[in-house]
């Protein structure tokens, strides 16, 4: 059984395995750093800990926009480092059986999976996620 947090960016659905999930926060004003990578929206203070907040729009190749009050920051961790992921909307946590995900992966509108690696956000096709 795969438990995934479903989220949306400009109507495009992505999913984060709940094993990465720390918490979901309303979007806050971020501090920008000189020469920050363009896929980083800024940094935030989470109870004294500084996190880099990744712009999922940039990672997904979508048009950039200003942070809005309705946006959310998904705080995720791979067990080594925490980071934030800025998204438009959180949908729900859903559970999928392996065969359901396989069927979904065959759809041209299949959602993609967000994973963490080397302090970065990776977007994976559902088929690749299932193969791993």
């Amino acid at each position: 059984m795969h438990e995934l947090l479903m989220l949306a960016i400009e109507g495009t659905v992505f999913a984060v395995p709940t094993s990465y999930l720390v918490e979901v926060l309303p979007a806050v004003a971020l501090s920008t750093m000189p020469l920050q990578p363009d896929f980083i929206s800024g940094v935030m203070n989470l109870r004294g800990e500084v996190l880099a907040v990744h712009d999922m729009r940039k990672h997904a190749g979508l048009a950039a926009k200003e942070i809005e009050e309705t946006d959310k920051i998904v705080v995720a961790s791979d067990g080594k480092i925490k980071l934030g992921i800025l998204v438009d909307k959180i949908e729900a946590v859903q559970r999928f059986k392996e065969e359901q995900l396989f069927a979904q992966s065959l759809s041209p509108r299949a959602f993609r999976i967000i994973e963490l690696k080397d302090r970065n956000v990776l977007i994976k096709d559902l088929q690749d996620y299932l193969d791993d």
Binding site: M33, A52, R119
Partner: peptide, 26 residues
């Protein structure tokens, strides 16, 4: 250190961040 929170593989960054009274300082 920024290298501890930014993705591996991008240019090494010698600078750091700290939090003091809820403000982030570069």
């Amino acid at each position: 250190n920024l290298n501890e929170i930014l993705p591996q593989g991008i240019d090494s960054n010698p600078h750091s961040l700290t939090v003091y009274e809820n403000e982030i300082y570069f």
